[in-house]
């Protein structure tokens, strides 16, 4: 997708005396964009602003070509997703809710059932929503959110309350979904399976500390990638040094190198790296 799908210019949001977003200017393109930061850093508020749920006290927000907060009443941006509250219609079963939500959202039930199976919901479909555990409820909400068609998908804390296996699944699904449409995910968890990240915004105390444009991974100059070297530790350290890695980590007989985009490209091309992911520590506010 050419050009940004979400633009925020000097966006301020206040909750009473608390400043939730302080002058955030950000342009988000296609693919998967991560909003990273500690609790209370403003990730969810930013998603709400994008979704049209929270009018900023100042600033301009354009989502999918729609200037959301123009005029008195917000205009509806082309987004769906999962943000904030996790209220469910407690009188419905999970199956009913999927059917119902799909009918509202115009989603494909086939896709919903497919997702439900992937997420391990099959055994819980007949339960009332109030009887679901928090993790299962989260799966249900993710199932519906992922199956809901829209131009842009917003997800807030997609990995919270999930078991590790489901985290991997959800990460894979988000990566897969990001190939279809822009996905903006607010999280402070970076599972290894979370591929296809095209941007990462680091937030702290409502401020945008840094935005990493990862649309072309090979052009990333900062050592954000954590690559797994397919060599013995000794050789791996030597190879990493040759590639210009900033750091080598040896753990349990496996070696990981922290490197920038060019080094990663070379590593992959030379067959020295068997996989890579973003390094959470490099994407922390402290590092930023």
């Amino acid at each position: 997708m050419s050009g940004p799908v979400v633009e925020l210019e000097d966006v301020w949001v206040r909750y009473g005396p608390t400043v939730a977003l302080a002058g955030v200017t950000l342009r988000i393109g296609g693919g998967l964009t991560l909003l990273l930061g500690a609790n209370g850093s403003g990730k969810t508020t930013l998603l709400k602003v994008v979704a049209g749920l929270r009018r900023p006290s100042r600033g301009r927000v354009v989502v999918g070509g729609v200037e959301v907060y123009r005029g008195l009443a917000p205009r509806r941006p082309p987004v769906t997703g999962l943000i904030g509250d996790e209220e469910l219609p407690y009188w419905m079963s999970a199956r009913e809710y999927i059917e119902y939500a799909s009918s509202i959202a115009g989603a494909s039930l086939e896709r919903a059932w497919e997702l439900a199976e992937k997420l391990g919901l099959s055994g819980f479909l007949e339960r009332r929503t109030w009887a679901l555990s928090s993790g299962t409820a989260k799966k249900l909400l993710l199932c519906i959110a992922l199956s809901t068609p829209s131009r842009i998908l917003l997800v807030d804390e997609p990995f919270a309350n999930l078991d590790p296996a489901t985290v991997s699944t959800v990460a894979s699904l988000l990566a897969e979904e990001s190939r279809r449409r822009p996905v903006i995910a607010a999280t402070h968890i970076l599972p290894p399976q979370l591929g296809g990240v095209r941007g990462a915004a680091i937030l702290a105390a409502g401020r945008l500390l840094r935005y990493y444009d990862l649309s072309d991974p090979w052009m990333v100059e900062e050592p954000l990638y954590k690559a797994r070297l397919s060599l013995e530790p000794a050789k791996a350290i030597e190879a990493a040094e040759k590639l210009g890695a900033s750091e080598v980590i040896v753990r349990g007989g496996e070696a990981y190198a922290i490197m920038n985009g060019a080094a990663l490209k070379a590593c992959l091309e030379e067959g020295l790296c068997s996989g890579y992911t973003l390094d959470p520590s490099r994407l922390s506010p402290q590092a930023a």
């Binding site: 769906t80 997703g81 959202a105």
Partner: peptide, 17 residues
């Protein structure tokens, strides 16, 4: 309060404002 949460959910499913 509960109803409001549901409203938000519906909104995020694409229901019209």
């Amino acid at each position: 309060h509960h109803e409001s949460g549901l409203d938000r959910r519906l909104y995020l499913l694409g229901a019209g404002r």
